[in-house]
Amino acid sequence: MPESAPQVAVIDYGMGNLFSVRNACRRVGLDATVTSDPAVAAASGALILPGVGAFGDGMQALRDLGMTRVILDAAESGKPILGICLGAQLLMTESEEFGRFKGLGLLRGPVRRFQGPQEEGRPLKIPHVCWSPIRHPDAMQAAPWRGTLLDSVAEGEYMYFVHSYVLMPEDRAMVLSFSRYGQVEFCSSLRAGSIYACQFHPERSGPPGLTVYANLRRLLLERGRNER
């Protein structure tokens, strides 16, 4: 019997384009619903928190929708959560973008503005709008991405970034990949259990980016089998 497409909720909190996320999900066989309804999100097998825009506005929008509780509950129950770009930043403890704002606090550490990226003495532009390679963290493991959402993505693969702020996890063990802008090395994705945060946009990063969504699908199918 063919397995049915796992359901994921793409949380629509009014911040940026969710439709490329939905399209990427559909391409790899995920049944994605774009929703701003907490009940729909709560009923799905995984949450994707995308978004572009300002941190404070994003948190406010999640609160106004009653979505913060759904996300925290999902984290508690071990349901996979994938935050992308602003969505990744909102999973952190706090940000200093246009003031000081508390985040969801699922991943410990702040979000800080890029500090003076340079190349050959010339300051680099912000936002960082670039395809940049993602690299393994300096871990002891031989294959640190095996079994994660980056499974079978080649080290050094290019992903598409658009951001002015960077994730600063307190615990380096959470770092899944590093990337570089000028001389500044930053955390480009991280993971704590079933919670993933990607600073890059996998849905806009061509075939290697789609691999991230395909891995999410596989993870959900495995979870489904284990629960049965």
């Binding site: 384009n17 439709f19 399209n23 990427a24 598409y160 806009r204 990063s205 061509g206 980016g209 789609l210």
Partner: peptide
């Protein structure tokens, strides 16, 4: 699955919202 920028005759917030909803 790469970024797509769309322009030409977009005048209002609603115009922008429409092209983003279409996948830009």
């Amino acid at each position: 699955f790469i970024p797509l920028t769309v322009g030409g005759g977009l005048r209002t917030i609603e115009d922008i919202r429409q092209v983003l909803r279409a996948g830009a």
